[in-house]
Design a protein around this nucleic acid. Structure first.
Lengths: 146, 146
DNA sequence: TTCTTATTGCAAAAGATTTGCATTTAAAAT
DNA sequence: ATTTTAAATGCAAATCTTTTGCAATAAGAA
């Protein structure tokens, strides 16, 4: 997603374009293939928007998630991580354990699981599927990965 | 997993069998197909172990996770949920958003993803796949689910 | 430029989880 | 059975992330 699209999404929902909001967007865009915490976003935005407050970060992240500009996952330590939505169809992510690089993978087995769930009288609403591994770069670098 | 196996795992790692620890185990075993929060476990164990403290719950859950007796997931609200490890082959879980009921699902698409990942020069090491929805009981109860 | 309302910053609250420390207890040693 | 000792516990307080209340500010319409 690019800035102009994000901004038009925001405007179309009746939200204003403020300096803090734009700073947050810019940071999200410049880290589009990396998950960021609220605190990480705060620190990055402070560079381009001096007085921004963590409250503003959270309030904007909530709005941006609701209007479909960003995507949130909760890490295994319970911390919320955010990243700009890719501008594609539903897909999943392959995340490098070492450098955090994210690759998209289109295949999703959800239809199969919907069937299985229905057989078990479960109504499926949601799923979490994340793949972890090491990217070529990190395998090739002689770093202490394994 | 049954109590005796869990206890022998605990002993084999040099941990003691205390009353609070045993109470926690019993609760986990009696709710083996349900995800429980630390607070939920506290409330249940208080019935059979009056003075137990939330600190003790957390400390024991950490140990039990480390020695492979329980399994932890983090909900989308960032709350840690726990359940006894099933004693079976690799599988995934279908979790009721409302009551926490868990069903096991044997199908796992990992082989397929391994192939896709290799094509992208990614070496897959791990994956997280959780399915969320509502169980029959919770749909039928007229509670405010949706 | 003025007006209206959303947005912001700050401080404080809330909720989950962790830590420090003195006391208690399991289980090994005697 | 008693003593010993290290682990485990309970309590209070701290920490960390996230949320809320409120007065001040700023965006964008009039």
């Amino acid at each position: 997603m690019i800035l102009s699209l994000a901004i038009s999404k925001i405007k179309s929902k009746g939200y204003k374009i403020t300096k803090p909001r734009e700073a947050i967007l810019k940071i999200l865009i410049s880290s589009k293939n990396k998950m960021l915490s609220a605190d990480g976003i705060l620190k990055e935005t402070q560079i381009i928007c001096a007085n921004i407050n963590i409250t503003t970060i959270y309030r904007n992240l909530e709005i941006l998630e609701n209007i479909g500009v960003i995507h949130k996952v909760v890490s295994s330590k319970g911390i919320s991580l955010f990243k700009l939505l890719c501008n594609e169809f539903h897909h999943h992510h392959l995340i490098c354990n070492y450098c955090g690089k994210v690759e998209s993978i289109d295949f999703c087995p959800i239809e199969y699981y919907k069937k299985i769930s229905a057989d078990k009288d479960f109504y499926l609403t949601d799923h979490k599927l994340e793949l972890y591994g090491f990217c070529k770069n990190c395998i090739n670098s002689k770093k202490n990965i394994f």
